[in-house]
Design a protein around this nucleic acid. Structure first.
Lengths: 233, 233
DNA sequence: ATGTAACGGATTGCATGCAATCGCCGGCCG
DNA sequence: CGGCCGGCGATTGCATGCAATCCGTTACAT
């Protein structure tokens, strides 16, 4: 049972994302500890971790506040993700795709083609696409072989809706989402092509542009009114 | 007295950097608490923060180990810093230098010229250059107006010798260091020129290359045998 | 002699106690 | 009637207690 703070932090993250703790709300230790059935000590550890991730801010006079994110901040985070994932793609292209990596990426492309093939997306296909998307991005990141890059990326994708996996979940306009995913997956194909050809600069540019999809998706989400902690200031 | 964990974390960072805690050494709570004259609770908070920064790793069976950094890892971190600071420079160039920013950067350039002007560098000039260097990089980062970028950069420069300010401190060959600093400052001039001209891509490329100085400096440090936690594996 | 299993010490991790601090409300004075 | 001061409640932050776990050691059996 070595990970009680981890579990608590995950629970709080979830609750912040789904709106159980509204933006700007104060997080006090005692109510949280009671609600979760643990003591204040692990709760404090979890809060410290969330503060390090940037999800909450230390309040004047102690305690923490759920941070409010503006649309501009999330868009900035998405741009940084593009810059970092672009670097990963460039590094991978420059050092050459291993046969194993090539095979894994091709499998991702095929899985994406399969998931998006139907005229309309059902929940299973959507989940499948999301899993594939995560895997593809993870392969490129790992393939770059740069641990510092992974750390920096983690610091940025801790923000809600900044991660690549945030492409999928919204409900908004289903047709618009399908179109967006088709476009994104076409970019996946081009990206793998560039990686396999050792075209580092092209791979970097493609990946940077690929991240812009998240911006469009974010606007769809906001238009649908589903984001609870983003403020389009 | 609201920041005891912060103070402890800073002390531990210092002790890790100067070798008081060797790489691979185990950090136990009780000895640390006794040595610092505090209880185990704030020590635990400080250790959690250092773990989040990546300086220490959770050991199997509890406790923490001082992380060992290989030369390759630090070089990777430097490359990531170049990518991120390059982005900051590009953003700043694209949105245009404000008169205030232009003035502040010119002041940095002048201060650097002054510090490096003498045929040999004394300690005061070195400190002055270091302060100027920090300021210049901070101005560019702040000028980009991208908070996520600052966060990602912070995650990377937490590693020893990866930050821009790591250019200065080593003793090694004084002549080589002076030459390195002159070269770096010449790049500062070019960089400000590109920023003022709105040349985003040029500014980004210059900044990326500028970070490579840290790699050369790192090798000088290693050659002088001053790095205690870097392992040239 | 070697492998195994049980014992002992040490350390972590969580729970709780206690003092200090901060914000807030009511009352009092100008 | 408004502003200021004092006391009160709540909350944080640190210290310590206690149980659980893990590692190392040793004794024993094969």
């Amino acid at each position: 049972m070595a990970g009680q703070p981890q579990r608590i932090a995950q629970t709080l993250r979830q609750q912040i994302f789904d709106g159980s703790h509204a933006a700007g709300a104060r997080l006090a230790e005692i109510p949280l500890a009671e609600a979760l059935g643990v003591s204040r000590t692990p709760v404090r550890l979890a809060l410290a971790q969330l503060e390090a991730e940037g999800l909450i801010l230390a309040a004047p006079g102690g305690g923490f506040l759920v941070r409010r994110f503006t649309l501009a901040e999330v868009e900035d985070a998405i741009a940084v993700r593009g810059q970092l994932e672009g670097m990963a793609a460039r590094l991978l292209a420059e050092q050459g795709l291993s046969p194993a990596a090539r095979h894994a990426l091709d499998a991702c492309l095929a899985a994406g083609d399969e998931a998006l093939g139907a005229p309309t997306l059902d929940a299973a296909a959507l989940a499948s696409y999301g899993e594939m998307n995560d895997r593809l991005h993870a392969i490129i990141l790992a393939g770059s072989g740069n641990a510092a890059l992974a750390r920096a990326l983690g610091a940025v994708t801790a923000l809600p809706f900044a991660a690549a996996s945030a492409l999928v979940p919204h409900e908004g306009s289903r047709a618009a989402r399908h179109e967006l995913l088709r476009h994104a997956h076409r970019q996946h194909h081009l990206l793998v092509e560039a990686l396999a050809a050792g075209q580092g600069t092209r791979a970097e540019a493609l990946m940077r542009e690929h991240a812009e999809n998240a911006r469009h998706n974010l606007r769809l989400i906001l238009a649908a009114g589903e984001a609870t902690i983003i403020h389009p200031a």
